[in-house]
Simulated assay, not measured.
Amino acid sequence: MQFGVFTVGDVTPDPTTGRTPTEHERIKAMTAIALKAEEVGLDVFATGEHHNPPFVPSSPTTLLGWIAARTERLILSTATTLITTNDPVKIAEDYAMLQHLADGRVDLMLGRGNTGPVYPWFGQDIRQGIPLAIENYALLHRLWREDVVDWEGRFRTPLQGFTSTPRPLDGVPPFVWHGSIRSPEIAEQAAYYGDGFFANNIFWPKEHFRRLIDLYRRRWAHYGHGTPEQAIVGLGGQVFMRRNSGDAVREFRPYFDNAPVYGHGPSLEEFTEQTPLTVGSPQQVIEKTLTFRESFGDYQRQLFLVDHAGLPLKTVLEQLDLLGEEVIPVLRREFAARRPAGVAEPPRHPAAPVPAGTGGD
């Protein structure tokens, strides 16, 4: 089981002080969070990709390349790589290059994003979102596995005798997760290729995501990759902790109430009851995270969102200390003890070191 954190890279005012960090401060903070994640023994750091304010991570490979140079074991991933508006040739080149620089500690999560105006900015039509995702990944998949590619499709110029460089490290492409919060077509795509499916179940009730994950598992087996239980699943989550749960609720409430995505909507208590958001003590985070297995089956990767909604860097680093010291060690033991034989191992490039704390699990 792999545990880590992901960031969406929002630049949001701190509602308790009114101060908004600069873009420079936010970018530096994301780097500090990644370094802290490795320090406290987490396995994965993942960044989103956005091309519009108030977000800053427009170039994930630049950020992850910088982090790769300053870490040794941390798996570096994306929380979204926009398969619809990025050229699949450039994705193939950029992430293979990053894979070499990071000695294999790279995978990526493909998604369509949630910002409609991005499509025309990059010359695409949002009404073609699903066909773009399907066609672009079909090409990307081939570019990493075939030395010479001849290809023709609907959305880009044809390729004749094309070789993507550099080639994947030791001939093994980066592992791909397909991320979706609503599209069965993407679950089907992940199953068809035998890739991972990541359900970022942070905003909607678990019943919605259970349907998507169950579909993915059934179709994974249909395409001959193994049993449904062997499919490779990742989940999102959100936490805010203090050793005293009342302190956690009081401190986090103004951030929740003013968050750009869910602020001014359901109450903190309603949202906590209906989604994976956990605001409380480390023990409460442990108990709720362990219930994910009951809803979604055994899975391979758990990522937590800890740095959004204007939370200051100092507070985020404190969250990582609590995760590393009090939460993740218990979750590792409990998930390992409950996992039946035959469940797939978490994805890892053969050249990459085993992430800290996994013991190869």
Results as ranks from 00 to 15, higher is better:
Q2R: 13
G4R: 03
G4K: 01
G9Y: 01
P13I: 07
D14S: 09
T16H: 14
R19E: 15
P21G: 12
H24K: 13
R26L: 08
M30F: 07
A34R: 02
A34G: 01
E38H: 02
E39N: 07
V40D: 01
V40W: 05
G41D: 02
D43Y: 06
D43V: 07
T47I: 14
G48M: 05
H50I: 08
N52M: 12
S58L: 06
L63R: 01
L64P: 00
W66S: 08
T71V: 08
L74P: 04
A79S: 00
A79I: 02
I83K: 00
T84A: 07
D87F: 09
P88E: 07
A92V: 07
E93R: 06
A96E: 02
H100P: 04
D103W: 07
D103Q: 15
V106W: 05
D107C: 09
R112H: 10
G113F: 00
Y119D: 03
P120N: 08
G123L: 13
I126C: 06
I126F: 09
R127A: 15
Q128E: 15
N136A: 07
Y137E: 06
A138I: 01
E146W: 04
F155L: 12
F155Q: 11
R156A: 14
R156S: 13
T157E: 15
L159R: 02
G161I: 12
S164H: 11
T165K: 11
R167L: 09
D170V: 12
V172P: 08
S180P: 04
E188Q: 14
Q189H: 11
Q189N: 14
F197E: 00
F197C: 04
F198P: 03
N200V: 08
N201Q: 04
P205Q: 09
E207Y: 11
F209Q: 08
R210E: 10
L212N: 03
D214W: 08
L215T: 10
Y216E: 05
R219E: 11
H222I: 09
H225N: 09
P228R: 10
E229W: 08
I232M: 13
V233T: 06
G234N: 01
G236W: 00
F240G: 02
R242T: 01
R243W: 11
R243N: 14
R243Q: 13
N244K: 15
N244Q: 14
S245C: 10
G246A: 15
D247F: 12
R250P: 07
E251F: 07
F252P: 02
D257A: 08
D257N: 08
A259C: 06
V261N: 03
P266N: 09
L268K: 02
E269V: 03
E270G: 08
P276A: 06
Q284N: 06
V285N: 00
V285G: 04
T289E: 05
S295R: 10
Q300A: 12
F304H: 01
V306Q: 05
L313H: 08
K314C: 06
T315M: 10
E318S: 12
L322R: 05
L322N: 04
V327D: 01
I328E: 03
V330L: 11
R332E: 12
R333Y: 11
E334S: 13
A337T: 12
R339H: 13
A341G: 15
A344H: 13
A344G: 13
V354H: 14
P355T: 11
P355C: 13
G360T: 14
